[in-house]
């Protein structure tokens, strides 16, 4: 009985505030835009009895999803989100791996402090971290002033409001997500494995490629998913750093909902985004599962 009460409260909460809302999104994505309040049709009218339910289901269709395929704004936004997420994930890996490696090789007594230095920016406001790059990357920003001052460029570079700024923003804000799992994998690595590799004829560099790198693979995979998954649906970074040409699906969804007030299409956009995300999420879970099993 006590167990039932313990389960019931969080369970009910999540069903009401997570699961049901999701069903509503699904339902509205199958509805049509209407000039009404709320601005979509059909509405479920239980007072009309069986006929009402029949009318309701009869009124649902995949029109919005077909619309998503015909209007090239949407599929371009999906593709460009995917592209931006993939490229920035790889960039984050390239920046994060050497840092994680350096931390794992650093003297023992420095590591907790370094760990803290990696986590600290993560606990300050996301919005502020993205905002901090606006002043750096703008045409009259600090970076351009610096480069002009050095005489490296004669014209200010146009970085803010381009995809490059979005890449920088994603790498910057999600870097801890990449460093921490890779560091954890490298830290676990038994030093005698590298000595064994050297003993069996490897140079330091081959020992890295044949032992360290493959054994940190699961950390890299975890880090990549931890960056890729949120980057795909990112809204703040493209809104502040990307220009009007930088299409990302999170931003499209937000604008569709608030500016165009087209709730059915916004819902359909959300459903498709989730369907796209399911693949990396399942792969990520499988990687974590394998990691846990290997640990046992």
């Amino acid at each position: 009985m006590r167990k039932f009460a313990l389960i019931a409260l969080p369970y009910t909460w999540l069903v009401l505030l997570f699961f049901v809302p999701f069903l509503i999104v699904l339902k509205i994505s199958l509805s049509d835009l209407a000039l009404a309040r709320p601005p979509y049709a059909p509405q479920l009218d239980l007072s009309a009895g069986w006929q009402g339910i029949k009318d309701f289901f009869g009124g649902l269709d995949f029109e919005n999803f077909i619309w998503l395929t015909t209007d090239d704004l949407y599929w371009k936004a999906y593709l460009s989100s995917l592209k931006i997420a993939v490229i920035s994930t790889l960039l984050t890996l390239m920046v994060g791996y050497p840092m994680a490696y350096g931390m794992a090789k650093a003297p023992e007594e420095w590591r907790p402090a370094m760990m803290m230095l990696v986590i600290l920016p993560f606990s300050t406001s996301f919005l502020i971290r993205v905002y901090s790059w606006m002043g750096i990357l703008s045409t009259e920003g600090y970076l351009n002033q610096f480069l002009l001052g050095l005489g490296l460029i004669s014209e200010p570079l146009m970085i803010l409001n381009t995809p490059v700024a979005v890449y920088i923003g994603i790498v910057y804000t999600y870097l801890p997500f990449m460093i921490l799992p890779i560091y954890a994998a490298l830290d676990k690595l038994d030093g005698s494995l590298l000595e064994a590799a050297e003993d069996l004829g490897c140079s330091r560099f081959t020992a890295f490629w044949l032992v360290t790198f493959p054994l940190s693979r699961s950390g890299m995979i975890a880090g990549c998913f931890l960056v890729f998954i949120p980057a795909l649906g990112e809204f703040v970074i493209p809104s502040l750093l990307g220009g009007s040409e930088t299409l990302m699906i999170g931003k499209v969804l937000y604008e569709e909902f608030f500016n165009n007030r087209d709730w059915p299409v916004a819902s359909a956009v959300a459903v498709v985004l989730l369907l796209i995300l399911i693949i990396p999420i399942v792969l990520f879970q499988r990687n974590q599962q394998k990691e846990r099993e290997a640990g046992q």
Binding site: E195, E198, G201, S203, V211, A294
Partner: peptide, 20 residues
Amino acid sequence: IPPNERPVNMMFQSYALFPH
């Protein structure tokens, strides 16, 4: 002479078998 060029091999206490 670095370890990888010595005519010596070692069996480690932890065995140091490559898990992958």
